[in-house]
Design a protein around this nucleic acid. Structure first.
Lengths: 134, 134
DNA sequence: CACATCTACAACCATTTGGTTGTACGTTAG
DNA sequence: CTAACGTACAACCAAATGGTTGTAGATGTG
C-alpha cells in the first residue's frame, strides 16, 4: 500500500525493528488495529503500570507504528496500516540479496562487490583497514 | 518456502527483531549472504574490536539468522536463507490482523465491540493480566 | 465547585546492551 | 618446535532499556 519508493535509512529501520522486538509492544499493535484505544484502556490489559505502557506506546510512536489522537481527556492510539509495510520493505531489502530481486539487489550488492568499492550507501566501512582493535 | 506452519513464539520473534534492530548486524547479514566469511574477516570491515563483532555474530546466531561452521582455524559465518522468511512470517501475523478485514468498517465495528471485551481471534487473549515478561 | 480520570513527565533503580581489554587455547605456517 | 593467526571467553564499563513511584496539569462528572 503505497510503501515502496521510500528510502529507509538505518536509524528508521533500527527504531522499527527495535519497537517490534518486544512482546508487549507487538500485542499493543494488535489491539490497536481493530480500533483506537486509550492508553489507560490499554494499560488495563498488561501486568504493569500505566507509565510503563505509556513508554511502550511512545516507542511505537517514535517508530512510526502508531499515532495518538486526543479525544477529550483520552489519548487514542491507533496503529498505522502502512507501518508494517515499512518493516516488510526493510526485510525485502535484506531478502532481495539472495532472493533474486534484481532491482534492489544491484544497489545493495554494489556496496561491496567482493572487493573495494568507494560507494558505501549502507554502512561506514573501513576501506583502509585501520585495525579493528583499539 | 519451508517457512509456513512453524510456530513462532514470542521469545523467538523477540530475538529475531532484536537482532535485526542494529545497523551493524544487518550489514553483517548482507555481507554473509554472498558467501561465508570468517569472523575476523568480518571484523576488518567495522570500526570496532574483533570481540564486539563476535558478539554481534552471536546475537545473529541466537536469532537463527546465521550459522557458523568451523573450517580449520576459521569460523565461517553464513546467513540462513529461510531466516528472513521467519521475520516476514512474524510480520504477516501482525499484518493479517487488519489485512483480513475491510479496514474502515472494521474500525467502526471495533469501536463498539472493543468496549466490551472482544474475543481475540488469532492471538493469546491477554484479558487476564499475566502478560509478557521480559 | 469538588472530585475523579486520563495523561504527561521526572526521578530513580535493576538489568541488558554494546563496547572495551586481557588471557587462554587450538590451528596453521615457517 | 615456535610463532603467528583465529577464536573463545571472562571481566569490566558506560549507556540504554524496562520497569517503578510520585507529582502535576487537563478534562469530564457529581
Amino acid at each position: 500500500m503505497v510503501v515502496d519508493v521510500d528510502e529507509l535509512n538505518d536509524e528508521t529501520v533500527d527504531r522499527l525493528f527495535h519497537a517490534l522486538a518486544d512482546t508487549t509492544r507487538r500485542d499493543i499493535l494488535r489491539r490497536c488495529v481493530r480500533g483506537e484505544l486509550s492508553v489507560s484502556r490499554l494499560a488495563e490489559a498488561y501486568p504493569m503500570s500505566f507509565a510503563a505502557v505509556q513508554k511502550h506506546v511512545a516507542v511505537l510512536e517514535r517508530a512510526g507504528l502508531v499515532s495518538k489522537q486526543r479525544s477529550g481527556r483520552e489519548q487514542l492510539v491507533r496503529t498505522d496500516p502502512d507501518a508494517v509495510g515499512r518493516a516488510r520493505q526493510a526485510l525485502d531489502e535484506l531478502e532481495s540479496a539472495w532472493r533474486g530481486r534484481v532491482d534492489r539487489m544491484a544497489r545493495l550488492l554494489a556496496e561491496d562487490a567482493g572487493a573495494e568499492e568507494p560507494e558505501d550507501p549502507g554502512h561506514q566501512e573501513n576501506d583502509t583497514p585501520e585495525g579493528p582493535r583499539r
